[in-house]
Design a protein around this nucleic acid. Structure first.
Length: 262
DNA sequence: AAAGCTGACAACCGCAAGATC
DNA sequence: GGATCTTGCGGTTGTCAGCTT
């Protein structure tokens, strides 16, 4: 097994060097992700496959965001943790560029310490969510941040959204329905578990953001894009499911009462 | 200035599930 | 069908920089 092998081989441990990173990156660019156990053999790296995988996933993989989590991301983590608990990898799927390890570390640092009282933790969560709400209010007071094209696009889609809301009011009360018939997946936990606080502030640097994943039993994907240019801070265009993104643009509204209305 | 504390982050470990032989 | 291997996940620990006393 791996552990006994590791002992036999005497794998190197501890911080990775630049040279090791380079070797690993070269391996992945040549062979792709996976087959981690053969990395040592093919590159000369004295690291276990497990260690290589971890280094790649958490540090070297392209597209990873570095630096502090944004208030938006913090809000998402709080909301998703309320639903899934310590399912870090699941939560990470909804935070593009962030790893489960990063999220786990964040949670542990801010909320996970046993010595922290429940009251303190709740206060901290409230603080994060409050910051999000304040940000939204600031954005509402600065409509000039949003370009006219987007406002027009918003007006165009407003009617569509409204009619959908009326037609599907019953379903919306139960959960979140996908706009097309064949894809009307209900996400029961979303309505109940998500406060609508965090998406209201999605006007940051993110050009897109995946909300829910269709492949997941818990929900579906709504690839929300153009956040920085959406007509109102609480609304954005979105496409659905992978490559069909461009073909299914709709407007998603983040509503204080119902959550997300399509 | 030095010691202690804390937060952030990287990395390791054990375990479990799935894949392969 | 069972043994072995590989991969992924969550928990935990180690390290270091910045802050406080």
């Amino acid at each position: 097994m791996m552990s006994s092998l590791a002992t036999e081989k005497g794998w190197r441990k501890g911080p990775w060097t630049g040279e090791e990173d380079k070797l690993l990156s070269e391996y992945v660019s040549l062979h792709g992700e996976g087959r981690w156990s053969s990395v040592a053999e093919l590159t000369g790296l004295n690291r276990s496959g497990k260690s290589c995988r971890l280094r790649w996933v958490n540090y070297l993989r392209p597209g990873l965001k570095k630096g502090q989590l944004t208030p938006l991301e913090e809000g998402i983590i709080i909301e998703l943790h309320a639903i899934w608990g310590n399912k870090w990898s699941t939560i990470a799927k909804y935070l593009p560029g962030r790893t489960d390890n990063e999220i786990k570390n964040y949670w542990r640092t801010h909320f996970g310490k046993r010595e922290k009282s429940k009251h303190k933790i709740e206060r901290q969560k409230t603080k994060v969510l409050k910051q999000l709400k304040q940000k939204r209010q600031q954005e509402l007071q600065q409509p000039q941040e949003y370009d006219i094209k987007s406002i027009m696009s918003h007006e165009q889609t407003k009617t569509e959204t409204k009619s959908f809301e009326t037609q599907n009011n019953e379903q919306l009360q139960m959960g979140f329905m996908y706009p097309t018939l064949e894809q009307q997946y209900t996400v029961p936990s979303m309505h109940e578990g998500f406060s609508s606080t965090w998406p209201n502030t999605l006007a940051g640097d993110d050009s897109w953001f995946s909300l829910w994943d269709f492949d997941e039993p818990q929900g579906f994907s709504a690839y929300v894009n153009h956040f920085s240019k959406c007509a109102m801070p609480n609304q954005a265009t979105f496409g659905v499911g992978g490559d069909s993104m461009q073909n299914h643009d709709k407007t998603i509204c983040f509503d204080d009462t119902y959550g997300y209305l399509f």
